[in-house]
């Protein structure tokens, strides 16, 4: 090896204490550093991003072309205007699986151990991860919106309500990211995180108002399940806002659910993360 014989520790080894004013400043700084690590590799993992975008586009095309003729929804002469918000909602929710998979991957590679040996605020590892997955979701969302526009989807309401609809969807997926964080920390492998993260996504998004009017469901109990499903509330709120109709109390319920998920699951996941040293 022809390394210059420069000093490895440069000066005598002196500990470097992170500067920073207070705990809140540290949480913010460390979380952004951690989120930055993940966001930076999104464009380098282009195939993942492409497939994450192709899948919702495929769903848009399948539902629109295959079921478009046979699914009638009262109040929506154009099924696409009904369907698209449902697909949007499903896609951002599926995007939360990146949290469990990414966390499990970092755990298995020893990256989490490295982070835990650094003098950073421990919870910033989870905050950074969920924030970066939100960024990824926004990118997927923009791509999907473009395809929807090409197919004829339009914002029938104001731009503000369309923005509010989008924010509601992303907030809900952020709440689910924290559920996924707990899953990622609890399962032992990347494969398990993928399965456990995805499995409940299907009943949650299909037993809902995403693709059909829940009143058309053939069993009363199934109708009840679909109606109380938070995913239905979020989809209904976003759909009404995109189409310029009255969302009723769906917006409120969406906010309650989303904020509730963030608060409850952030607490549980952070606790789980911290007690992994016991």
């Amino acid at each position: 090896m022809t390394t210059t014989q420069s000093s490895i520790s440069s000066t005598s080894p002196t500990p470097t204490v992170p500067s920073g004013s207070g705990r809140v400043a540290n949480i913010v700084l460390d979380s952004f550093t951690e989120a930055g690590r993940h966001v930076r590799i999104i464009p380098r993992n282009i195939e993942v991003l492409i497939f994450a975008t192709i899948q919702p586009v495929m769903f848009v095309l399948l539902f629109s072309f295959v079921f478009g003729g046979s699914i009638q929804v009262p109040g929506y002469p154009d099924y696409d205007q009904y369907l698209m918000p449902g697909i949007f909602a499903q896609t951002v929710v599926f995007g939360s699986v990146f949290t469990s998979v990414g966390l499990a991957e970092d755990l298995s590679k020893g990256l989490i151990d490295r982070l835990r040996s650094l003098p950073i605020v421990q919870s910033s590892v989870l905050i950074g991860r969920t924030l970066s997955d939100l960024v990824r979701n926004i990118i997927t969302f923009i791509a999907m919106l473009a395809v929807a526009f090409v197919l004829g989807f339009r914002f029938e309401g104001s731009l503000t309500s369309a923005a509010a609809a989008t924010a509601l969807l992303l907030l809900f997926s952020y709440g689910l990211s924290w559920v996924q964080a707990l899953i990622g920390l609890s399962v032992g492998s990347v494969e398990a995180a993928n399965s456990a993260g995805f499995l409940w996504m299907f009943p949650m998004t299909f037993v809902s108002s995403a693709f059909i009017d829940t009143r058309n469901l053939q069993y009363a109990w199934l109708r009840t399940v679909a109606d109380v499903n938070p995913f239905t509330q979020v989809t209904n709120a976003a759909r009404a806002l995109y189409n310029g109709t009255d969302p009723g109390d769906a917006v409120m319920w969406s906010l309650v659910w989303s904020i509730g998920l963030v608060v409850v699951f952030a607490a549980i996941a952070t606790r789980k993360f911290k007690t992994s040293s016991e």
Partner: peptide, 15 residues
């Protein structure tokens, strides 16, 4: 943690 460096069993680098 401000005084230690840890290199674990698996090369923990961001690939």
């Amino acid at each position: 943690r401000t005084r230690i460096g840890l290199t674990g069993q698996y090369a923990a680098v961001e690939e």
